[in-house]
Design a protein around this nucleic acid. Structure first.
Lengths: 168, 168
DNA sequence: ATATATTTTCAATATTTTTTGAAAATTCAA
DNA sequence: TTGAATTTTCAAAAAATATTGAAAATATAT
């Protein structure tokens, strides 16, 4: 397979993959493009390579910056802004985990704390089932939260080493 | 907070949560409803409680069954079908992980295997960056695959115990 | 200051996804 | 069988989401 074709496939399936994870196609494609580009790209480079509009490009680049996956690069003597993606995949994963934990897991756990205190008699099976379900999710969620915290702090080598041993 | 309100909030935020993870709102809501219902429900029960159409209900129940999260229950002497959700959250999580691994991670790893064999000279920095990126993702992906396999096989108590020790 | 390059915004449009509801198919009791 | 109950399908409609492109805002060089 030629590079040009392989790049296309990578970008396109990274985009499709993203949509399964609540990330919009374009954002995932821009990320993919930057991941496989040796040098930083401008907004125009991205527009041209992915065939998307200026507005779309701009919005999604900014979103990638919010996620901490892409950064602005200023090249001396150049007026335009350049963009480049973090290439270390372990860092990328940690960054995504960190953001999703903050945006989704933590608010969910807070809600569950509130819901667990529902009024009512536990002898009522509706109350019991509700409370048991909420508690069960909360317990697992709290554990996940701790585990992810550790993962975020870990070095790849340490993390993979540990996993290897435990899940040999 | 009254049970009725707590149930509403749970269903609604479980639905919103689902949309961040590529699951449609209705499917997540039906799942939530079944999780907190002590007894199995019929299609009509679900339609009424969530205010959704028959077609929508039917489609999403079937999808939940495909995901292995809900099962048909036949009550003797009843003509209608009843549905109930697995209540053990650890089992639910394992089931979701298992399905997503099969549907998303495994195909992605297969693709990366192919893409890694791209033609071209690694002294070309475009080729090098592409291959390095693909290899990096593949390596981490393979490790995730193994780790998830272990998790799927594990008992909750063992898993959490292990995590506690390692990520104390 | 002025002109020019560049980035950002956002209303309008297009696309994708979800939902509806009625018709068709299926199931089951009599 | 027949017919009522129930489930499934799917084209059309609605809703949600993503994209465009031109205008406005901003930044920079002269």
């Amino acid at each position: 397979m030629k590079l040009i074709e392989a790049r296309q496939q990578f970008i396109s399936s990274w985009g499709a993959f993203g949509t399964h994870w609540g990330i919009n196609r374009t954002m995932a494609q821009i990320h993919a493009l930057l991941l496989i580009s040796p040098d930083p790209l401008t907004q125009d480079d991205i527009m041209d390579q992915l065939n998307i509009s200026r507005g779309n490009t701009n919005m999604n680049i900014r979103e990638l910056i919010n996620w901490g996956l892409v950064e602005r690069v200023l090249l001396s003597g150049e007026r335009k802004e350049y963009f480049s993606a973090e290439k270390d995949i372990w860092k990328v994963v940690k960054q995504i985990v960190k953001e999703r934990k903050k945006r989704e897991l933590e608010p969910m756990l807070q809600l569950l704390d509130k819901l667990e205190e529902v009024e009512g008699d536990k002898r009522d099976k509706n109350v019991k089932t509700f409370v048991d379900t909420v508690s069960g999710i909360k317990k697992l969620g709290r554990q996940a939260d701790k585990t992810l915290d550790m993962m975020i702090k870990a070095e790849e080598s340490w993390f993979i080493g540990t996993m290897m041993k435990f899940f040999k």
